[in-house]
Design a protein around this nucleic acid. Structure first.
Lengths: 206, 206
DNA sequence: TATTTAAAGTTGACAATGTTAACATATAAT
DNA sequence: ATTATATGTTAACATTGTCAACTTTAAATA
C-alpha cells in the first residue's frame, strides 16, 4: 500500500504482488480466472505492466505454480509432530496432503495441471516433483520406518511414489467430484492408508 | 465422404464427425488444440456450423469427454480374460488402465479434466464416475474376490475406490512427468499393485 | 404436385484475451 | 547534471468463442 501511494508510477514490488495476487485469484476462481486485465486492474497497473517482469503470462503462472508447491510442502510437513510413531507420521502426512487438496482445490489443480507443457519441454529437469524437498522428506520417513522394521525393506523411493500416487489420485477424485462420498472422506482416507500399509488381501500370513 | 460429395451444403452427419474429429485433435494436440476454426476447417464447414448441433463448444467437449470415457472403459474391460484368477483379473484391469493413460495422455487428461465446471454444477448426478459401468465392473470383480476369500470383506465400493485412486494417481503422475522412472513403469505398477493387495508393512501376521 | 415450414449451413460482426511496438517516466549510474 | 536503464503506459493486432441475419436444402402439409 505504501509503495503504491508513494510513487504512483513505479509500483515498487510489482513482480511479487503479481504472484501473490495470482495465487489469490486461482484459489477463489481457478486458473481460468487469472486474466491479465483483471489481475493488473487489482494491482492498479496497466494490462501490460507485467511484461517488464515476466516474458509471458506463462512464465508468471509458472512462478505461481512454484509458490503453490511450496505452500503444499509447508502445509504437509510444517505441522508434523516429530515425536510421533513413524506409522503415525506417514498417516498424518497423508492426511495433511488430502486436507490441503480439499481446502485449496483450485490451487491443487493448477500446480499439478498441464498448461505448462511448452516450458516443461525446456526445463526438463526441474519439473520432476521427485526432486522436490517434500518428496524427499517423505522418502526419509519411509527409510526410517524401514530401519525400524515397520516397513518392508523395498525401494524407499518407489514406496514413496506409491504412497504419493494414492494421495494424488484420491485428492483428484475428491476435488473433481468423481467420488460422492463427501461425508465419508475420512473413512475413505483411513481405508486407503490402511490399504497402503497392510493391503486389502486376506491376512493369510503367507 | 459420400455424404459430403453428394450434397455440398448439408453435411449429413456433422454432429458425429465433430465429436470424432475432436477426439483425434485432443489425442494429438491436447484439449487446447481444439479450436472451432481448426475443427470446422478439417470437416469443410464454416466456423459456426456446429451451433446447429451443440449449444456451445462446452457442450461439444462434454460429449467428447463421454466418448473418451467409453473408450477407456472398453479398453480396460473388453480384453479381459474371463477365465483368469480373480487377483490376476484385478491386476490386468489395473495394467490396462495405466496403459490407456500412457497411450492416450491428452485424452486421459481431458476426460478427467475440470474445464466443465459450469455444466457439472447443473448435471450434478451424471458426472460422478462411480455410476459408470466400468467402475461397477470393478466392484463386481472385487465382490467376487471377497466371496472367494481372496480379499478382506470390507466395503467393496470403497475398496474399488481405493484401487481407482491408486490407478488414477499413478496415471496422472506418469503422464504429467512428475515421475521420471520412465523405463521402470512396469516395476512401479507391480509394486503399486502388490501394495494394494498386500500392503507395504512388514508381514508380522499381526 | 406445389407451397410452406423447419433444419442445417454461411457470412459478417463483436467482445474478450494475450501480445507487441512505440512512447513516457522514474530511478540509478557516471 | 546528464546519461542510461528499469519500469509503466497507450494503442493496436491476431486469435478465440459467440451471436444475429441471411441462405440453402430437406421435410411436411395442402
Amino acid at each position: 500500500m505504501n509503495a503504491k501511494t508513494n510513487s504512483s508510477y513505479h509500483h515498487g514490488n510489482l513482480k511479487e504482488e503479481l504472484i501473490s495476487e495470482s495465487l489469490k485469484m486461482v484459489e477463489s476462481g481457478g486458473i481460468a480466472s487469472i486474466t491479465l486485465r483483471e489481475l493488473t486492474n487489482r494491482l492498479g497497473t496497466s494490462r501490460t505492466a507485467l511484461y517488464r517482469h515476466f516474458v509471458s503470462k506463462e512464465e508468471l503462472l509458472q512462478e505461481v505454480i512454484q509458490a503453490g508447491f511450496e505452500k503444499l510442502d509447508t502445509y504437509v510437513f510444517s505441522t508434523l509432530d516429530s515425536d510421533l510413531d513413524l506409522t503415525l507420521k506417514l498417516h498424518d502426512v497423508g492426511k495433511a496432503y488430502i486436507d490441503f487438496a480439499i481446502k485449496n482445490p483450485n490451487l491443487y489443480r493448477m500446480i499439478f495441471g498441464h498448461e505448462l507443457k511448452e516450458q516443461r519441454e525446456e526445463n526438463c529437469d526441474i519439473n520432476e516433483r521427485e526432486d522436490a524437498p517434500g518428496f524427499h522428506k517423505l522418502v526419509d520417513i519411509i527409510i526410517d520406518a524401514q530401519n525400524a522394521n515397520i516397513l518392508k525393506k523395498d525401494d524407499a523411493f518407489m514406496q514413496a511414489t506409491v504412497m504419493w500416487s494414492m494421495l494424488h489420485g484420491l485428492s483428484n477424485l475428491l476435488i473433481d467430484g468423481h467420488v460422492h462420498i463427501v461425508d465419508n472422506i475420512d473413512t475413505l482416507f483411513e481405508l486407503s492408508f490402511k490399504t497402503l500399509i497392510s493391503g486389502i488381501a486376506l491376512d493369510l500370513s503367507e
